[in-house]
Design a protein around this nucleic acid. Structure first.
Lengths: 262, 262
DNA sequence: GATCTCACATCGTGATCACATTTGCTGTTT
DNA sequence: AAACAGCAAATGTGATCACGATGTGAGATC
């Protein structure tokens, strides 16, 4: 597969930096509470501090980063309370999306969702956590986009970003594939069935339950007590390669394209 | 009353610019779809383009402003579809908050809410739209904060910003006070009653209905057809003073304070 | 008279510099 | 040995400049 094409919005350096930092956050390359500096990030990325500033400001607005009172930039701390509240909101919002997905007129929807769920199962069974997570992502956002509310999808996307350490922990925890292949697969199959039969209450309930189980698993796995530098895994956590960011290629053509959406 | 003290976060020039622009958006000083420019905004505000850039980028991240494919910065267009979807999400999220408010242990809550609602009624009856809106704001966010989920309050705050033209229209439409003093007052009283008795379903339902009525009124009042430059009021709309922004005082001390929240 | 062309003003973006504040360390003191 | 003072390095913020892309309007062309 060739190098992935640039997204429409990746035409400016700031946006490429944003994408890079966002990915690093989702991959858990940074530890919650860790301090970042514009200049050192710029050095790592091979740009001037300017585009980094823009990207960081955006991530602050999205609450993935936080600015302390002394103006230092840190990765959003990840406390139990915070995460619990976040999950509670996610259950509400993503449950709502699932409910709306029941009203979708998209005939191929159910089939696609079944495909994603199946892919997740298979990937998990061969312990390919990354692929399983990707399929899991496709499944969830397949549902959310079927809700037909683009602004809702955006909001949920942001909530996923803010739950970054959760995703990172799943990725680093090989045992996670067991959960994905048992609990998640079965519950998500219930979501699909509810969407197929148009049972809105069941769709909302099942999707919320999927999140609830994920939350319960995570709480058992993640050590919140070490909140100062963000909790590592309680046991068996293969340590990541540590915080670092890859340079951003600068000599891409800077071309614009037509439409903007939303 | 003395000049309002600077908020903790208003210590940097960028944040003051942000606050100014945000207020201008909420007051309808800008028309949806209108183009903005960093340099001219900076000139109006009496700063360099730099802090304006930061503020604008933040507002873009919050989807109050939009960047076109040609990199122009415009006020987020306000279409019927967009607004309808936004209101649907608001009903869900704010209804959820109302439901959670039923579980609040705050003994003074119901009393305070009754006070806000009463203030709104009285202000509306003397056709003081601004005061009525302020009381309405206090009531709503009184409920939302009682939900005990700060991140939820943030999200709702953002949704209110994105519904900016709605608030602006209410402010410019004297007849709006009638709606506030009849429909809204009664429905919000039902919200309070539900919270008092702990009836979660009724709280959610009533609050959602409040939004639904507001939406219905707005659709009758606002002319979406002129979407190019944002819809003015259909009739009776006293034209605003037009887009303009007041300068930001620069020689404030730049002091920091302790805590950061969230 | 409508359409095209081209020059010019203006735009956002990125880089660089200046500055006040904050941070971290070192050597001293109690 | 722990607490403190003070200095030097590093930080975010804001201003200014350069550059390529965009948009606009006057004048030429058909």
């Amino acid at each position: 597969m060739p190098e992935r094409l640039l997204t429409l919005e990746d035409s400016s350096l700031s946006e490429r930096v944003y994408t890079a930092l966002r990915l690093a956050l989702l991959r858990g390359k940074f530890v919650p509470g860790e301090a970042l500096s514009l200049r050192s990030l710029a050095a790592s990325l091979g740009t001037s501090p300017m585009p980094v500033r823009a990207a960081v400001q955006r991530l602050i607005a999205e609450k993935a980063l936080v600015q302390t009172a002394s103006r230092a930039i840190i990765v959003a701390p990840f406390t139990y309370e915070n995460f619990k509240d976040l999950m509670r909101i996610r259950m509400e919002l993503e449950g709502f999306a699932a409910e709306r997905a029941c009203m979708s007129k998209d005939r191929g929807l159910v089939g696609r969702l079944k495909g994603f769920n199946q892919s997740m199962l298979e990937a998990a069974q061969r312990h390919d956590v990354e692929a399983a997570l990707a399929a899991n992502y496709s499944f969830h956002f397949g549902v959310y986009e079927a809700a037909g509310l683009p602004q809702l999808t955006d909001m949920i996307t942001n909530l996923w970003l803010r739950a970054g350490p959760y995703l990172a922990a799943v990725q680093r925890q090989p045992r996670a594939s067991e959960i994905l292949s048992t609990n998640s697969f079965k519950i998500q199959d219930r979501v699909i069935e509810a969407i197929r039969t148009g049972d809105r209450k069941a769709a909302r309930f099942s999707l919320a339950m999927d999140l609830r189980f994920a939350f319960a698993w995570f709480v058992k796995t993640y050590d919140f007590s070490d909140n100062r530098l963000g909790g590592p895994l309680k046991r068996d956590g293969t340590e990541g390669t540590g915080p670092d960011v890859r340079p951003v290629s600068r000599d891409e053509p800077r071309r614009n394209v037509k439409a903007y959406s939303d």
